[in-house]
Design a protein around this nucleic acid. Sequence first.
RNA 1: GGGUUGGUAGCUCAACGGUAGAGCAGUUGCCUUUUAAGCAAUUGGUUCUGGGUUCGAAUCCCAGCCAACCCA
Length: 480
Amino acid sequence: MRRQKLADLRATGFDPFRASVSPTHFSQEAIAQYVDEQDNTVTVTVAGRLITFRVQGGSSFVKIQDQQGIIQLYFRKDVIGEERYLVFKKQLDLGDLIGVTGTLFKTKTGEITVRVESFTLVAKALRPLPEKWHGLSDPEQVYRQRYLDLIVNQESRQRLMTRSRIVSHIRRFLEDRKFLEVETPVLQGVAGGAAARPFQTHHNALNTDFVLRISLELYLKRMLVGGYDRVFEIGRNFRNEGVSRRHNPEFTMLEVYQAYSDYRGMMTLVQDLFRSLCTDVLGTSQINHAASGETIDFAAEWREVKYKDLIREKTGNPDWFSLSKADKIAGAEALGLKVDPAWEDYEVTNEIFGKLIEPKLIQPTFVTHLPKELCPLAKLTLDDPSTIDVFELIIGGMEIAPAYSEQNDPDVQRQMFEAQAGEEVQNIDQDFLLALEHGMPPAGGMGIGIDRLCILLTGAESIRDVILFPQLRTTAADSK
RNA sequence: GGGUUGGUAGCUCAACGGUAGAGCAGUUGCCUUUUAAGCAAUUGGUUCUGGGUUCGAAUCCCAGCCAACCCA
């Protein structure tokens, strides 16, 4: 039927797919042009997708949607002429893209509206839009056909636009502080900087296997060696692991490195960043955390607590860290946890942290001085070499940002890598160690998972709601 | 990887072993200031796929595919 209308239009010598329009304003800019009490004095050209269509005989109200939102248009037979009005009425469909020129006026009910003098169809929608009232709710279609979700579901439009603004704000915030944005390789010989299973790939011309990066860290530190004292990268990481409400195989990380700073400097930086995000993007310093029912208040003082103190508090045992592994396992099981006897000592303790403590930390909390086994890239704490000079920022029960005083002693770094790699020495990034031997300045570094940050700040329930095209299984429908 | 739930018209959903339906969208009329839905008429289906049980299956059973949620 829509194809028939397209054919009819082409038969008259007009092909919408060869037509265009030059809008003078976006929808909300156009509305702002209206001068009160002065109907039909300002002329604008706007363009967008037809989302409601209400014909009332010789006059009609329709709405179009563009990037900024929705604007109402008013078509009258006696303004555009009988012939054009018939084209408007018979050849246009919901979902079509049109451009119109007309004057601004205010309707009886007070809505600023374009009184259309001329219009052009610039793309014909050959398939119908999902229903306007209920929107599109089938989650599979929401994710696979995100464009439809964005057209009909206002919350999705808003949420994903907020994500764009968050990322853009972060760039400005860091650039204002003299950080340089750099781009480092996605294809790497060794996947370093984190413990995760990488995706494998192969370069034909070089006949070499590569992995997709799992972290940005080791290349950004090479930049510190190279004399870029403040660097950051916002980039995609890839981890070949499970898919869940909190995990997508490709996800976006911000990593920031600042020479002559340390993990405490990162604390200040991240608090400043959140405060400016609250002011400039969210417009509030308080957000509701649906899962806990609490209100997260970014303006209040952020709690700082040592990892070991949290464990001692949770287990009720001030001497927890001197217990034998068997006693720790017994203690964890007494708290209701399932423990694999093959786990290392620190893994048993970390299970308590991950399962029982972290989910309860709703207000912004810096957990500091984690056990050294949890990260080989940080400096050891001077007065307790079993821990490292780091924090893990927890908000809303989620890890949002880890930060370290970065290890810059090449020999200690090598030992830490070797201890971690065990038999798999080929997985050590030797070139990174070579770079460290040339001297890396002392530095603070921090990573922020952008997707999780967006979940937190937009109140989304799933990582899929803040990623435009989340990973799904491919299906035959993809080639339909 | 395991468990639970779901897949019916373009979309949102009914029908729960006995003729596949509604609302919106679409189509055809009428209607010159409307706000999800004007009034009237009307079109539209391989009920995810493949087997099985049954006189009869959207419905019950088995397998598969896809998705969501929970767990690992």
